[in-house]
Protein backbone atom coordinates (compact mmCIF):
# COMPACT_ATOMS: atom_id res chain seq x y z
CA UNK A 1 0.00 0.00 0.00
CA UNK A 2 1.12 3.46 -0.74
CA UNK A 3 -1.37 5.00 1.51
CA UNK A 4 0.99 7.80 2.46
CA UNK A 5 1.27 9.10 -1.09
CA UNK A 6 -2.21 8.26 -2.27
CA UNK A 7 -4.87 7.99 0.34
CA UNK A 8 -7.59 5.48 -0.40
CA UNK A 9 -10.23 8.04 0.27
CA UNK A 10 -10.65 11.73 0.54
CA UNK A 11 -9.77 13.08 3.96
CA UNK A 12 -12.41 12.47 6.56
CA UNK A 13 -14.40 10.09 4.43
CA UNK A 14 -15.76 7.00 6.10
CA UNK A 15 -18.49 4.87 4.54
CA UNK A 16 -20.14 4.44 7.95
CA UNK A 17 -20.65 8.15 8.33
CA UNK A 18 -22.31 8.80 4.99
CA UNK A 19 -25.89 9.93 4.71
CA UNK A 20 -26.58 10.36 8.42
CA UNK A 21 -30.19 9.82 9.43
CA UNK A 22 -30.51 13.46 10.44
CA UNK A 23 -29.63 14.54 6.90
CA UNK A 24 -32.11 12.16 5.33
CA UNK A 25 -34.82 13.25 7.76
CA UNK A 26 -34.26 16.89 6.86
CA UNK A 27 -34.15 16.10 3.15
CA UNK A 28 -37.53 14.41 3.35
CA UNK A 29 -39.17 16.58 5.94
CA UNK A 30 -39.06 19.79 3.97
CA UNK A 31 -40.98 18.21 1.13
CA UNK A 32 -44.42 19.48 0.42
CA UNK A 33 -46.01 16.03 0.29
CA UNK A 34 -44.66 15.22 3.73
CA UNK A 35 -46.25 18.35 5.10
CA UNK A 36 -49.52 17.81 3.28
CA UNK A 37 -49.84 14.22 4.39
CA UNK A 38 -49.19 15.02 8.03
CA UNK A 39 -51.54 17.97 7.91
CA UNK A 40 -54.21 15.74 6.48
CA UNK A 41 -53.69 13.03 9.08
CA UNK A 42 -53.66 15.47 11.94
CA UNK A 43 -56.68 17.37 10.67
CA UNK A 44 -58.81 14.35 9.95
CA UNK A 45 -59.81 13.68 13.59
CA UNK A 46 -60.99 17.28 13.91
CA UNK A 47 -62.92 17.01 10.69
CA UNK A 48 -64.56 13.90 12.07
CA UNK A 49 -65.36 15.70 15.33
CA UNK A 50 -67.04 18.44 13.35
CA UNK A 51 -68.90 15.89 11.27
CA UNK A 52 -70.16 14.10 14.35
CA UNK A 53 -71.24 17.29 16.05
CA UNK A 54 -73.05 18.48 12.92
CA UNK A 55 -74.92 15.21 12.64
CA UNK A 56 -75.48 14.75 16.36
CA UNK A 57 -78.80 13.31 17.32
CA UNK A 58 -80.15 13.22 13.83
CA UNK A 59 -80.39 9.55 13.11
CA UNK A 60 -78.10 7.74 15.53
CA UNK A 61 -79.83 4.45 16.20
CA UNK A 62 -80.63 3.84 19.82
CA UNK A 63 -78.54 1.23 21.58
CA UNK A 64 -76.60 0.49 18.48
CA UNK A 65 -73.33 -1.19 19.28
CA UNK A 66 -71.51 -0.54 16.06
CA UNK A 67 -68.12 1.07 16.21
CA UNK A 68 -69.32 4.05 14.24
CA UNK A 69 -72.34 4.67 16.44
CA UNK A 70 -70.25 4.45 19.57
CA UNK A 71 -67.65 6.91 18.32
CA UNK A 72 -68.98 9.79 20.36
CA UNK A 73 -69.07 7.82 23.60
CA UNK A 74 -65.50 8.51 24.59
CA UNK A 75 -62.14 9.63 23.33
CA UNK A 76 -60.99 6.01 23.03
CA UNK A 77 -64.10 5.04 21.14
CA UNK A 78 -63.54 7.95 18.85
CA UNK A 79 -59.91 7.10 18.28
CA UNK A 80 -60.80 3.50 17.51
CA UNK A 81 -63.38 4.71 15.04
CA UNK A 82 -60.96 7.14 13.43
CA UNK A 83 -58.43 4.35 13.04
CA UNK A 84 -60.96 1.94 11.63
CA UNK A 85 -62.10 4.33 8.94
CA UNK A 86 -58.63 5.37 7.90
CA UNK A 87 -56.66 2.13 8.24
CA UNK A 88 -58.01 0.55 5.11
CA UNK A 89 -57.07 3.30 2.74
CA UNK A 90 -55.81 6.61 4.06
CA UNK A 91 -53.05 5.12 6.17
CA UNK A 92 -52.18 2.74 3.36
CA UNK A 93 -51.71 5.68 1.04
CA UNK A 94 -49.68 7.53 3.64
CA UNK A 95 -47.42 4.55 4.25
CA UNK A 96 -47.08 3.83 0.55
CA UNK A 97 -46.24 7.47 -0.06
CA UNK A 98 -43.43 7.70 2.45
CA UNK A 99 -41.94 4.34 1.53
CA UNK A 100 -42.58 4.34 -2.21
CA UNK A 101 -41.40 7.83 -2.81
CA UNK A 102 -38.13 7.69 -0.99
CA UNK A 103 -35.74 6.20 -3.55
CA UNK A 104 -37.80 6.73 -6.67
CA UNK A 105 -38.03 10.47 -6.13
CA UNK A 106 -34.26 10.73 -5.76
CA UNK A 107 -33.97 8.83 -9.01
CA UNK A 108 -36.40 11.16 -10.71
CA UNK A 109 -34.50 14.22 -9.45
CA UNK A 110 -31.22 12.60 -10.53
CA UNK A 111 -29.89 13.30 -7.08
CA UNK A 112 -29.60 9.54 -6.49
CA UNK A 113 -26.53 9.23 -8.69
CA UNK A 114 -24.72 12.01 -6.92
CA UNK A 115 -25.44 10.45 -3.55
CA UNK A 116 -24.19 7.10 -4.79
CA UNK A 117 -21.10 8.65 -6.32
CA UNK A 118 -20.32 10.78 -3.31
CA UNK A 119 -20.10 7.79 -2.43
CA UNK A 120 -22.79 6.54 -0.13
CA UNK A 121 -22.50 2.74 -0.31
CA UNK A 122 -25.64 1.29 -1.84
CA UNK A 123 -26.57 -0.90 1.10
CA UNK A 124 -26.08 1.99 3.43
CA UNK A 125 -28.09 4.37 1.31
CA UNK A 126 -30.93 1.90 1.18
CA UNK A 127 -30.71 1.18 4.89
CA UNK A 128 -30.75 4.85 5.85
CA UNK A 129 -33.60 5.55 3.49
CA UNK A 130 -35.49 2.53 4.80
CA UNK A 131 -35.14 3.66 8.39
CA UNK A 132 -36.23 7.19 7.65
CA UNK A 133 -39.10 6.16 5.34
CA UNK A 134 -40.39 3.61 7.82
CA UNK A 135 -39.98 6.20 10.53
CA UNK A 136 -42.11 8.70 8.66
CA UNK A 137 -44.66 6.02 7.81
CA UNK A 138 -44.83 4.93 11.44
CA UNK A 139 -45.19 8.53 12.54
CA UNK A 140 -48.07 8.90 10.11
CA UNK A 141 -49.81 5.78 11.39
CA UNK A 142 -49.32 6.78 15.00
CA UNK A 143 -50.16 10.45 14.61
CA UNK A 144 -53.72 9.84 13.46
CA UNK A 145 -54.98 7.82 16.43
CA UNK A 146 -53.07 10.00 18.88
CA UNK A 147 -54.59 13.14 17.43
CA UNK A 148 -57.93 11.37 17.46
CA UNK A 149 -57.46 10.67 21.16
CA UNK A 150 -56.76 14.33 21.74
CA UNK A 151 -59.64 15.50 19.59
CA UNK A 152 -61.94 12.93 21.14
CA UNK A 153 -60.97 13.99 24.65
CA UNK A 154 -61.64 17.61 23.83
CA UNK A 155 -64.90 16.88 22.05
CA UNK A 156 -66.39 13.92 23.88
CA UNK A 157 -64.46 13.70 27.12
CA UNK A 158 -62.16 11.12 28.62
CA UNK A 159 -64.91 8.61 29.32
CA UNK A 160 -64.75 4.90 29.78
CA UNK A 161 -64.81 2.94 26.57
CA UNK A 162 -67.93 1.19 25.33
CA UNK A 163 -67.02 -2.06 23.65
CA UNK A 164 -68.49 -2.45 20.17
CA UNK A 165 -70.70 -5.48 19.76
CA UNK A 166 -71.41 -6.19 23.40
CA UNK A 167 -71.82 -2.72 24.82
CA UNK A 168 -69.71 -3.51 27.84
CA UNK A 169 -68.13 -0.53 29.47
CA UNK A 170 -64.49 -0.81 30.46
CA UNK A 171 -62.56 1.85 32.36
CA UNK A 172 -60.44 3.98 30.08
CA UNK A 173 -57.30 3.32 32.11
CA UNK A 174 -57.51 -0.40 31.51
CA UNK A 175 -58.11 0.06 27.82
CA UNK A 176 -55.24 2.44 27.24
CA UNK A 177 -52.64 -0.35 27.06
CA UNK A 178 -54.99 -2.18 24.72
CA UNK A 179 -55.03 0.90 22.58
CA UNK A 180 -51.26 0.72 22.51
CA UNK A 181 -51.64 -2.80 21.13
CA UNK A 182 -54.03 -1.49 18.52
CA UNK A 183 -51.58 1.12 17.31
CA UNK A 184 -48.72 -1.35 17.43
CA UNK A 185 -50.66 -3.83 15.37
CA UNK A 186 -51.74 -1.15 12.92
CA UNK A 187 -48.04 -0.47 12.40
CA UNK A 188 -47.21 -4.13 11.87
CA UNK A 189 -50.07 -4.65 9.47
CA UNK A 190 -48.81 -1.82 7.27
CA UNK A 191 -45.41 -3.46 6.96
CA UNK A 192 -46.32 -5.22 3.74
CA UNK A 193 -47.46 -2.06 2.04
CA UNK A 194 -44.39 -0.25 3.29
CA UNK A 195 -42.02 -2.97 2.11
CA UNK A 196 -43.65 -3.39 -1.26
CA UNK A 197 -43.64 0.35 -1.83
CA UNK A 198 -40.00 0.40 -0.85
CA UNK A 199 -39.13 -2.43 -3.21
CA UNK A 200 -40.99 -0.73 -6.06
CA UNK A 201 -39.25 2.47 -5.18
CA UNK A 202 -35.90 0.87 -5.90
CA UNK A 203 -37.17 -0.50 -9.20
CA UNK A 204 -38.70 2.53 -10.81
CA UNK A 205 -37.82 6.16 -11.38
CA UNK A 206 -41.42 7.19 -10.97
CA UNK A 207 -42.43 7.91 -7.39
CA UNK A 208 -46.10 7.69 -8.31
CA UNK A 209 -45.52 4.28 -9.85
CA UNK A 210 -44.11 2.95 -6.62
CA UNK A 211 -46.84 4.48 -4.47
CA UNK A 212 -49.55 3.43 -6.89
CA UNK A 213 -48.17 -0.07 -7.16
CA UNK A 214 -48.32 -0.59 -3.42
CA UNK A 215 -51.79 0.89 -3.13
CA UNK A 216 -52.82 -1.23 -6.10
CA UNK A 217 -51.70 -4.33 -4.27
CA UNK A 218 -53.93 -3.44 -1.37
CA UNK A 219 -56.87 -2.89 -3.69
CA UNK A 220 -56.32 -6.20 -5.49
CA UNK A 221 -55.97 -8.01 -2.18
CA UNK A 222 -59.16 -6.45 -0.88
CA UNK A 223 -60.95 -7.65 -3.97
CA UNK A 224 -59.54 -11.16 -3.68
CA UNK A 225 -60.47 -11.16 -0.03
CA UNK A 226 -64.09 -10.85 -1.02
CA UNK A 227 -63.93 -14.12 -2.94
CA UNK A 228 -65.27 -16.45 -0.30
CA UNK A 229 -64.45 -19.56 -2.28
CA UNK A 230 -60.77 -18.95 -1.78
CA UNK A 231 -61.40 -20.09 1.77
CA UNK A 232 -58.39 -20.38 4.00
CA UNK A 233 -56.10 -19.27 1.20
CA UNK A 234 -57.31 -15.77 1.85
CA UNK A 235 -55.59 -15.86 5.21
CA UNK A 236 -52.32 -15.52 3.37
CA UNK A 237 -53.33 -12.38 1.56
CA UNK A 238 -51.24 -9.59 2.98
CA UNK A 239 -54.21 -7.41 3.78
CA UNK A 240 -56.45 -10.11 5.17
CA UNK A 241 -55.68 -9.44 8.81
CA UNK A 242 -55.64 -5.67 8.64
CA UNK A 243 -58.68 -5.36 10.85
CA UNK A 244 -57.48 -7.89 13.42
CA UNK A 245 -56.70 -5.06 15.80
CA UNK A 246 -60.42 -4.92 16.54
CA UNK A 247 -59.79 -8.06 18.62
CA UNK A 248 -57.72 -5.96 20.97
CA UNK A 249 -60.83 -3.97 21.82
CA UNK A 250 -63.01 -7.02 22.41
CA UNK A 251 -63.85 -7.79 26.03
CA UNK A 252 -61.56 -10.79 25.83
CA UNK A 253 -58.26 -9.82 24.31
CA UNK A 254 -57.75 -12.30 21.49
CA UNK A 255 -54.25 -12.47 20.12
CA UNK A 256 -54.74 -15.20 17.54
CA UNK A 257 -55.80 -12.98 14.68
CA UNK A 258 -53.12 -10.44 15.38
CA UNK A 259 -50.46 -13.13 15.65
CA UNK A 260 -51.48 -14.53 12.29
CA UNK A 261 -51.61 -11.07 10.80
CA UNK A 262 -48.22 -10.15 12.18
CA UNK A 263 -46.82 -13.42 10.90
CA UNK A 264 -48.10 -12.89 7.37
CA UNK A 265 -47.07 -9.27 7.43
CA UNK A 266 -43.53 -9.94 8.62
CA UNK A 267 -43.13 -12.80 6.17
CA UNK A 268 -43.97 -10.74 3.12
CA UNK A 269 -42.16 -7.73 4.40
CA UNK A 270 -38.86 -9.48 5.11
CA UNK A 271 -38.76 -11.06 1.68
CA UNK A 272 -39.75 -7.87 -0.11
CA UNK A 273 -37.08 -5.92 1.71
CA UNK A 274 -34.46 -8.56 0.98
CA UNK A 275 -35.41 -8.34 -2.69
CA UNK A 276 -35.11 -4.57 -2.51
CA UNK A 277 -31.58 -4.77 -1.18
CA UNK A 278 -30.59 -7.51 -3.59
CA UNK A 279 -31.93 -5.64 -6.58
CA UNK A 280 -30.63 -2.25 -5.64
CA UNK A 281 -27.16 -3.58 -5.01
CA UNK A 282 -26.93 -4.97 -8.53
CA UNK A 283 -28.89 -2.33 -10.29
CA UNK A 284 -27.44 -0.11 -12.99
CA UNK A 285 -28.41 3.41 -12.04
CA UNK A 286 -29.32 5.01 -15.35
CA UNK A 287 -31.70 7.71 -14.20
Amino acid sequence: MTADTAPATASGYSPGRTLPLSVEIVRQFRRRRTMVMFTLLLALPWVLVIAFSLGAGSNAPQNSLRLSDLATESALNFAAFALSVSASFLLVVAVALFCGDTVASEASWSSLRYLLASPVPRDRLLRQKLIVAFGYAAAAVVSLPLMALLAGTVAFGWNDITIPGTGEVIPAATVLPRFGIVIGYALVSQLVVASLAFLLSTMTDSPLGAVGGAVGLVIVCNILQAVETLGALREFLPTYWNTAWLDALAPELDWSGMIKGASVSVTYSVILLALAFRRFRRKDIVS
Binding site: P7, A8, T9, A10, Y13, P15, S110, R113, Y114, L116, A117, S118, P119, V120, P121, R122, D123, R124, R281
Partner: peptide
Amino acid sequence: PGAPVLSRLGSFVEG
Protein backbone atom coordinates in the same frame (compact mmCIF):
# COMPACT_ATOMS: atom_id res chain seq x y z
CA PRO B 1 -20.36 0.71 -6.72
CA GLY B 2 -19.79 2.80 -3.65
CA ALA B 3 -16.04 2.19 -3.59
CA PRO B 4 -14.49 4.52 -0.99
CA VAL B 5 -12.06 5.90 -3.53
CA LEU B 6 -15.00 7.57 -5.22
CA SER B 7 -14.79 10.12 -2.41
CA ARG B 8 -11.80 11.56 -4.28
CA LEU B 9 -13.93 11.98 -7.37
CA GLY B 10 -16.16 14.92 -8.01
CA SER B 11 -18.68 14.44 -10.72
CA PHE B 12 -21.28 16.12 -12.80
CA VAL B 13 -22.80 13.73 -15.26
CA GLU B 14 -25.89 14.05 -17.38
CA GLY B 15 -27.44 17.05 -15.81
